[in-house]
């Protein structure tokens, strides 16, 4: 396959960026999108140019490191992560636009790499349980009803890639935050911090400069793990419950 790439190049956080055009040839339809970028980078290095910086790690669709907006879609046209997107999703001769996540809470570090540590700080604010760690407890020591376990698993699938923020017209982190809150709040292990978790995580989310939710639904459409939009509804419910409880104390 022969492709024309228009890639966002930005030297550092303070520099102005712009789209640069590159031609790549000899691309196999079985390559992943990242392997295609590797091919481009090899050529750039050989010709003495600065390779395109992009985040990647496991390349198995489970770590949440890859983060590219491809032709205006977070993670590209298929509902998966960029590393699991294959070049067969494109046609020979296509022009493909590659851009970084865009949100003021995710500043560009270089080219296609953005700083997502705002997510880490949201997790620090309450995305944990205060149970003693050590050896794993006996699996059936704490009974969890099947529907609750399924609900928790569905939300635990979030890999924190930030596609929801990238897709949101308001740069909101509601889907990420709600997935984490719902995952822990439904389980007995998460019960002791049920109220503080939602209040603190939402407060941290606001503190980081993410936007608010206008229920446009772009986040759930972009999510490679299929976190549903109703996750946000669940977080709102938890938040209202916790606020009412806190008000009574």
């Amino acid at each position: 396959m022969k492709l024309t790439l228009r890639v966002w190049r930005q030297k550092n956080a303070d520099a102005d960026g712009a789209m640069s055009t590159y031609e790549v040839d000899g691309i196999s339809p079985d390559m992943s999108f990242l392997e295609m970028l590797d091919t481009l980078n090899e050529e750039l290095i050989l010709s003495g140019e600065d390779p395109v910086a992009f985040d990647h790690d496991c390349r198995e669709g489970i770590c949440g490191a890859c983060s590219l907006v491809i032709n205006g879609d977070a993670h590209g046209p298929e509902r998966t992560t960029t590393c699991q997107l294959h070049m067969r999703s494109f046609a020979d001769g296509d022009t493909i636009d590659v851009e970084p996540w865009r949100a003021s809470a995710f500043p560009v570090v270089k080219d296609l790499v953005v700083d997502r540590s705002a997510f880490d700080r949201i997790i620090e604010a309450g995305g944990y349980i205060t149970a003693p760690t050590g050896s794993a407890p006996e699996a059936h020591a704490t009974p969890v009803p099947k529907p609750d376990a399924d609900f928790a698993f569905e939300h635990a699938e979030c890999i924190g890639c930030g596609a929801c923020v990238a897709a949101c017209p308001n740069g909101a982190a509601m889907l990420f935050t709600s997935a984490k809150i719902n995952h822990l709040n439904v389980l007995p292990q998460g019960a002791p911090e049920r109220e503080t978790r939602v209040l603190d995580m939402v407060a941290q989310m606001d503190e980081e400069g993410f936007g608010g939710c206008t229920l446009a639904g772009e986040c759930a459409t972009a999510c490679p793990k299929g976190i549903p939009l109703t996750s946000i509804t669940g977080m709102n419910k938890e938040w209202l419950r916790a606020t009412r409880k806190a008000g009574r104390r």
Partner: peptide, 18 residues
């Protein structure tokens, strides 16, 4: 105001949304 500030730069490749 908050939403616009949270998403200051637009994507070059824009798609009709929502």
């Amino acid at each position: 105001r908050r939403d616009i500030k949270a998403r200051p730069s637009k994507y070059v490749h824009r798609k009709p949304r929502a």
